[in-house]
Amino acid sequence: MSVSDDRPADYDLAERWDPVVNEYVDALADLDEFLRVCAELTGFDVPELRSTGMADEHHRTTLAHRVRDEHALVHLWYVGAWPGEAPSSARAHDRGLVWRTFHAVPPGSAAPGHGSWAEAPRGAVAPDNGVAPDNGGEDR
């Protein structure tokens, strides 16, 4: 995904991550610019990134690191942790983009609901193995 803006056609996003080029690095101090760059890197648009509820927290995590590495930013958004570190919060992993990517719920993050064990999962077919259910030995 590419975010449309007024950048020249020969603009190199990699320049943004060069710590020597302070004007680009300092631009990430602005939350809106941070989100615009992250949208370009992750493939999710800015409203989608904001809807995770992690924009401010991921911005603070990024600002806490001196090196602005595009791979680290993508890892942060998808997994909820800066590479090599624990998640930035208890909810960061659960809100990671990895779960949205394949429309899943992180294991253990949401209760399936009372009595959910009594019904087959959606789309599952109950096996018909020809064996009568066990009635606790009442017919013997």
Rank of each mutant, 00 (worst) to 15 (best):
L76A: 13
L76T: 03
W77G: 11
W77A: 07
W77E: 12
W77Q: 11
W77L: 13
Y78C: 02
Y78G: 10
Y78A: 00
V79G: 05
G80P: 07
G80Q: 09
G80A: 12
A81Q: 15
A81G: 02
W82T: 06
W82Q: 15
W82N: 10
P83Y: 07
P83F: 10
G84T: 01
G84A: 06
A86P: 02
P87N: 07
S88I: 15
S88C: 14
S89I: 08
S89R: 08
A90V: 04
A90K: 01
A90W: 04
R91Y: 08
R91M: 06
R91N: 07
A92F: 00
D94A: 15
D94R: 09
D94G: 13
G96C: 13
L97V: 13
L97D: 06
L97E: 02
V98N: 00
W99P: 02
W99L: 07
R100A: 04
R100P: 02
R100F: 11
T101F: 04
T101Y: 02
T101G: 11
F102Y: 07
F102C: 06
H103M: 12
H103K: 14
A104Q: 15
P106N: 01
P106H: 10
P106R: 14
P106Y: 02
P107H: 09
P107V: 03
P107M: 06
P107A: 02
P107Q: 04
G108C: 06
S109E: 07
S109K: 04
S109F: 09
S109V: 05
A110D: 00
P112C: 06
G113F: 06
G113S: 10
H114W: 15
H114N: 05
G115W: 01
G115V: 03
S116P: 04
W117F: 10
W117G: 07
A118V: 02
A118H: 01
E119H: 03
A120S: 00
P121R: 04
P121G: 07
P121C: 12
R122S: 03
R122P: 15
G123S: 02
G123Y: 08
G123Q: 07
V125Y: 05
V125F: 00
V125E: 08
V125K: 01
A126P: 09
A126H: 06
A126R: 07
A126M: 01
A126E: 06
P127M: 13
P127T: 07
D128G: 04
D128T: 12
D128C: 00
D128L: 13
N129S: 12
G130Q: 05
G130V: 02
G130M: 01
A132T: 13
A132Y: 12
A132Q: 12
A132L: 08
P133V: 13
P133R: 12
D134F: 15
D134M: 00
D134W: 15
D134N: 11
N135P: 00
N135V: 09
G136Y: 10
G137H: 13
E138L: 14
D139Q: 09
R140P: 10
R140S: 12
